[in-house]
Simulated assay, not measured.
Amino acid sequence: MRFSMQAMVVVTTAYIGSFIVMNLLISPVQKAVFPELPAVVSLVFLPHGVRILTFYFCGWMGLIYLLPGAFLMWMLMVFGSGLNGYHIAGTAISLLSCFIGVAMARHFFERLWVSSARFSWQQIMVAGVLGSIGNAAGLSLLQFSAPSPMIFSAYVIGDISGLFLVLVFLMGSFRIFDRLTANALR
């Protein structure tokens, strides 16, 4: 696979855009409803969807495409939001766990993945769950001396719900685009 600057710009824009939407819309609601959750935990973490989809479609090259957005997101969290305890290693853990989750899902669905030319949201969700479990375990260990089952569960719920919402948004957007294109061709 060859490097594409266009892919890097699209992935970085999607990553930062999902992070901004999460902070402007989702985080205030979560703080009001669940004030006991730490600020580093989101119950709807949209960037997880961007990470999983990037690794799904770009393979290992997704790491290169995700690095600028991941680093900018980390800087925004630490310097913009005042989460000084959020270590850069958390970014590496998240990216690595998503890559491993997609690789594991590819292995589990190897025959299906190769034989199917169609996009499979089921495979994406399995990859997202596997990546989320690794992400939750790694981040829980990194950020808390004794990983709390509540924090671990919140990470998994946030990653999976974020991936699900990104998929729903993309599927809806593609359907609308298909309808508009079909109407324009008539």
Rank of each mutant, 00 (worst) to 15 (best):
S4F: 01
A7G: 02
S18C: 00
F19S: 02
M22W: 01
M22Q: 13
L24H: 07
S27A: 14
V29L: 14
V29P: 00
A32Y: 12
A32E: 10
V33G: 04
E36S: 15
L37I: 15
V41E: 07
V41C: 10
L46R: 03
H48L: 06
G49C: 07
V50W: 02
Y56K: 08
C58R: 15
Y65F: 14
Y65S: 05
Y65Q: 03
Y65D: 02
L66H: 01
P68C: 06
P68E: 01
G69K: 02
L72M: 14
L72W: 02
M73I: 00
M73C: 03
F79C: 00
F79P: 01
S81F: 12
L83H: 10
L83V: 08
N84M: 11
N84C: 03
Y86C: 03
I88Y: 01
A89V: 15
A89M: 15
F99G: 04
I100N: 12
G101W: 09
G101C: 09
A103N: 03
A105K: 03
F109K: 07
R111T: 13
L112R: 13
W113G: 03
A117L: 09
A117I: 08
Q123A: 14
M125W: 10
A127P: 06
L130T: 13
S132W: 09
I133T: 11
N135K: 04
N135P: 00
A137H: 04
L139Q: 01
S140A: 12
L142I: 12
F144I: 12
A146G: 05
P149H: 06
F152E: 08
S153E: 06
Y155V: 05
V156E: 09
G158M: 05
G158F: 14
D159E: 04
I160P: 00
S161K: 04
F164D: 01
F164M: 10
V166E: 00
V166S: 07
L167Q: 07
S173K: 01
S173E: 05
S173T: 13
S173W: 11
S173M: 13
F174G: 00
R179C: 04
L180K: 14
T181R: 12
A184Y: 10
L185T: 10
